[in-house]
Computed example of a mutant assay.
Amino acid sequence: MKKVVFVLILWASNAVFSQGCSDAGFCTSENMKYGTAVDSIKHTLKFGVNHGSADFDISVFGMYLEYQYKITEKLNIGTRINYINQTKETVSSSSLSDGFIIADYIVNPTVSASVGLKIPFTDGNVKENGMALPMDLQPSLGTYDLIFGVSKKYKNLFFALGYQHPLNKNNNTFIKPSSSNEFFTTNQFERAPDLLFRLGYNYSINSKWKLSPSLLPIYHIANDTFEDVNNQEVQISGSKGLTLNASLLAVYSLNDKNAIEFNLGTPLIVRDARPDGLTRSIVLNLEYKFRF
């Protein structure tokens, strides 16, 4: 089994570019990953790290801290804080990016529902030497997002449907130089909503190892927009459409309360234009989970 995991990690490190998720954090909530919501233990604490490459030779390192609290047998609430560092040659940005608050409710033993809010820690207009950075180097999209999700389990299969809706434009003021072939103009950037679906299979190899392969289509339901120098709204052609990812979760249980999770993924289909800067080549997401 150790050889299998090692090969999978190598495979992921050579993955080509993908959008990854509609927004970091939403796709990795418990309800969207496993088709489950409320744990049998009252408290869960998670810490994760990831590293990868983005468009335009940008190197990305991220961390997150997550806490989940079981309120009742049916209701669970989770909070998550993300940190990101993005570097391109001599330009770098590092900051807390977004926070998430998500409540999960068990409708019945096979159906769970979620509702949540994404809260930005920056306005999407971090600057370097007085100049606004493009969205690819922004720590956050700078938007408050409403999040809705529902999941259904059938034996080892699970299905998850999610919707993420930005509530505001961000304050980005980046305008791409006419001589540049990199990035997109994102002045007063407005990102369209995402519709997400996941089809997965939970498989227990033994008492220690569990695998969960899945397909994750994300449909960006409209073109994103920006404002030109005349304050006219302009659609970004090609930003609407489908991204399809294949992913694999591997969970190793150290004991009843401690576990390590590996999360690997690769794209099958990507959108023509991704001005939000969420494109990632995921090398590996490594997470430690402690329940108490």
Rank of each mutant, 00 (worst) to 15 (best):
V4G: 01
F6K: 13
V7H: 06
I9V: 15
W11V: 14
N14L: 15
N14V: 13
A15N: 14
F17Y: 15
C21M: 07
D23F: 02
A24K: 06
G25S: 03
S29V: 10
N31E: 11
K33L: 15
G35A: 03
T36D: 10
S40I: 05
S40H: 11
I41P: 03
T44W: 00
F47D: 00
F47R: 01
G48H: 06
H51L: 06
F61R: 13
Y69E: 06
I71H: 12
I77G: 02
T79M: 13
I81V: 14
I84G: 10
I84C: 05
N85C: 04
Q86H: 07
T90I: 12
S94E: 13
S97P: 07
I102R: 11
I102D: 04
A103I: 04
A103R: 04
Y105W: 14
N108T: 01
N108G: 02
P109T: 01
V111I: 14
L117I: 13
F121H: 10
F121T: 12
G130N: 06
L137S: 02
Q138G: 08
Y144N: 07
I147G: 04
V150R: 03
V150M: 15
K152L: 10
N156P: 10
Y163P: 05
Q164R: 14
Q164T: 09
N168E: 02
K169D: 05
N170K: 09
N172T: 01
T173W: 04
F174S: 00
P177E: 00
E182G: 00
F189W: 05
A192M: 07
P193H: 03
F197T: 01
N202I: 08
Y203K: 12
Y203A: 08
Y203W: 13
I205S: 06
N206W: 07
N206A: 00
K210A: 09
S214V: 02
L215F: 14
L216Q: 08
D224L: 06
F226N: 02
D228F: 04
Q232E: 07
E233K: 13
I236L: 11
S237I: 10
G238D: 04
L244Q: 07
A246F: 15
L249F: 15
L254M: 11
L254K: 12
I260F: 13
L264H: 09
T266E: 00
T266H: 08
I269M: 06
I269G: 01
D272R: 12
D272T: 09
D276I: 01
D276S: 02
L278G: 08
L278V: 04
L278M: 10
R280Q: 09
L286G: 03
Y288Q: 00
F290C: 02
R291A: 08
R291T: 01
F292W: 15
